[in-house]
Amino acid sequence: MAEKHKFLEVKGLTMDFGGLRAVDSVSLEVCEGEIAALIGPNGAGKTTFFNCVTGIYTPTQGEILLHPKELPTRRLNGLKPNKVTEMGLARTFQNIRLFSDMTVLENVMIGRHCRTHSGIFRSILRGKGVREEEQQIVETSYQLLEKVGLADFATEFSKNLPYGAQRRLEIARAMATEPFLLLLDEPAAGMNPQETAELDQLICKISAEDRIAILLIEHDMKLVMNISNHIYVMEYGKKIAEGSPQQIKDNPKVIEAYLGEETDA
């Protein structure tokens, strides 16, 4: 681990909502080329953690540091979500948040927004540069759709897509922002085994081909154990364990907190 380049470094992140401590000094690292997973029972604070990292919430305490490869280290605390995305950290949402009245292609094109520059006046004049940029946006977006296997749906409205496809579209949209770190919030939720298997392949492909590090929240243990290199476990806002999939499987604390609860239910 030591010689690998750390992309994301979170130190002692704490998030309070009034008297409720949703995340309690959680530390976490995601390295280059890694697929890390954040697991834990419902309400453990995983999504809150994501929201802190991506700028939707400003954390009460702690440090969120992003180390891009070419650029200097940036502290993400209190940065607006769009700035965080510009830094190269994209995300998907647990409850799908697509632009439902836009086509599938347009959804991905929105992701290109922060990497393109035509302003109001240039858009009105619509010169050669703007037209070329527009075409570039369309082509890149289409290629991303091909990558996630949604090219045939390009002109559909995103609200008409099946559930699994909507999840993949969210990934494509996030990738359009050219991130080096991708946060996936329960990408397999509500998917059938077939779709989950496809998602498994897709995530591995993104990690291997695009060299994007991935941090995912997931409840599907099979998927998590299959693809992740490093797993963090949270319960009641605290990190209770971390390690390789095998270490996590054998960790009694995790079994008690997580798997134990499942047998109870």
């Binding site: 510009e86 949402f93 632009f99 009245d101 922002t177």
Partner: peptide, 14 residues
């Protein structure tokens, strides 16, 4: 249009 459809997702997309 994206802003109209979903503000949070819009901001998260940069």
């Amino acid at each position: 249009i994206a802003l109209r459809e979903d503000e949070i997702a819009c901001v998260a997309m940069g």
